[in-house]
Write a protein that binds this DNA or RNA. Structure first.
Lengths: 302, 302
DNA sequence: CTCCCCCATCACTTTTGCCGATGCAGGCGA
DNA sequence: TCGCCTGCATCGGCAAAAGTGATGGGGGAG
């Protein structure tokens, strides 16, 4: 019962050269190894396959047996396949074709993905980009599991085994209804909102972040509502249910249901939230990933 | 400039196992090597290809990168190809399918090939037999050059580097025209024909053989005609141009042109000519060749 | 916090591949 | 026919590679 093939690609290539040149000596010169290396390799190959491939005619070099001739024919195809495989593998790492999977934190997605995908698509039209949206944990797991290679995230409790590169910072701001007493102020301190009910964007790590901001400003927020939807939070604020702290700012004030919400700059010395491009550290980035990172840097850094 | 692929089939198989089982440890157990062997092999493969294929998650085994996933897909096809190649090669040596090239001395061919091909074809219908006919030297060169693997020959000055197996013996006989003075004798001594002109079958080694027979019988033949065609010799004899010495005996006396020739047994103590099956010694015979040899033995030995 | 799982790494051993030299056998020219 | 030359096989020695078992680190799970 012949189990699995125990020959080597090297042996196959040696045989190929010898068969094509009709001489082990010539093959040895071409490949830059000794003639004995060719000899033993071919012998091993023949023994392994159980077929005699070459006929050694002492002073007249080699000739192929019928079996050798047919094998040679198959072999060419096979070695081509081997080269193709190498080629494919290398290009998987370096070429700017194929596909690239990126992750994106869900509330960040509508703000930056359109531009990024547009510019990346223009620069590298041969690369198909597949986006995974989700909360920070989900995206982080996707990174770790290899489902995606890059991710746009807030640097909120990211595991240290992720390499991150800060692309931009998103300072927190307060969102209040237009009829709020401070709606016209332009800027407030969080303490000014201490008595107002708060609407919290309730995503795994975000909730802690917003709470910590409030605490840092010295207030204990009275949470009235929670929602996992950014737009719902805006709508609740617009409807007068309370104020919210957010980081991303839409270009207009109108909510889906026609309400309006007013953004107020915060004068507290609060840390801005870094928007980072994260990668699994220790994983060699593909060329596509590097290209995408470059586009991100240019688009968001400027 | 990526020269040529420097990975190993073994490395590929190790990677396949690890990727499929999601664990190097498991792969190691299955393949019966140590875990470290898998680890280093996969690492080398990745370095060689320049692509990261697996993500190592410390306590949770492995997961494939996107590149690894795609590579794995290609790889399966490739390893199947490798198995096919092995399979093909092995069957080239052992299977009773494919083709078999045999050589045959030209004057022997019409006497034994029909039966041999018929019986071999019945026993091994999947093997296509390709016959090369020619004089002894031609067939011998075909053997040496790998053009054919077996040959039916007279053992006439065959090189000692050929393995031969005697299948039958063909005693020489004299052929005379019907009106010859000894045509009714049934048997003669060569000396009785010493004065008759001789017709010689003029093939590279045959001519010397016929001459040596005559000399051995103590006569110096008077050669009237030479021909490279067996049937021409018969016809010349039938037409009264002289006598001939031959080994193969057709079932009837009539020549192509309607003449008749009479065969006379020779009472001289002359060596019979061995009909041999010749192979290049030191060349491993394929299964097909062995099967053909067996058919020859059975058909001609009986 | 502890245990356990899984992979990377290390030192060591075994195997393999290669080299250079030598031997052998056949073609070929003198 | 006799060397000479060519071309492959083989051998001893050596270096590179692969494999082994042990160790360690990092991270999940209870």
């Amino acid at each position: 019962m012949p189990k699995d093939a125990n020959f080597t690609l090297v042996q196959l290539r040696y045989f190929l050269a010898a068969a094509e040149l009709g001489s082990m000596t010539a093959a040895a010169q071409r490949i830059n190894v000794s003639q004995s290396a060719i000899s033993t390799a071919v012998t091993h190959l023949e023994r392994e396959l159980g077929v005699q491939l070459l006929i050694r005619r002492h002073a007249k070099g080699l000739s192929l047996t019928r079996a050798g001739e047919r094998f040679l024919h198959e072999l060419r195809g096979f070695l081509t396949h081997a080269d193709d495989l190498t080629e494919a593998a290398r290009s998987l790492g370096t070429d700017l074709v194929g596909e690239l999977a990126v992750g994106c934190f869900q509330t960040l997605a509508p703000f930056c993905l359109p531009q990024l995908l547009r510019e990346f698509g223009r620069a590298h039209p041969a690369v198909r980009v597949q986006v995974t949206e989700g909360d920070i944990r989900t995206v982080q797991d996707a990174l770790r599991g290899g489902t995606c290679e890059l991710a746009l995230l807030y640097d909120l409790g990211l595991d240290p085994d992720l390499d991150r590169e800060v692309l931009a910072v998103a300072p927190p701001y307060a969102l209040v209804p237009p009829e709020h007493r401070l709606a016209g102020a332009g800027a407030v301190r969080l303490a000014d909102l201490a008595e107002d009910p708060m609407i919290v964007l309730d995503l795994p790590l975000s909730r802690d972040y917003f709470r910590s901001l409030a605490l840092k400003a010295g207030i204990e927020p009275r949470v009235r509502h929670r929602s996992t939807s950014y737009e719902t939070v805006r709508a609740l604020v617009a409807a007068g249910h309370g104020f919210a702290i957010l980081n991303q700012r839409p270009v207009h004030d109108t909510t889906y249901d026609g309400g309006r919400a007013v953004a107020l700059r915060l004068t507290d010395p609060l840390p801005a939230l870094p928007v980072v491009l994260a990668r699994l550290s220790g994983v060699r980035p593909t060329g596509r990933a590097q290209a995408f990172a470059a586009v991100c840097r240019e688009a968001m850094g400027a």
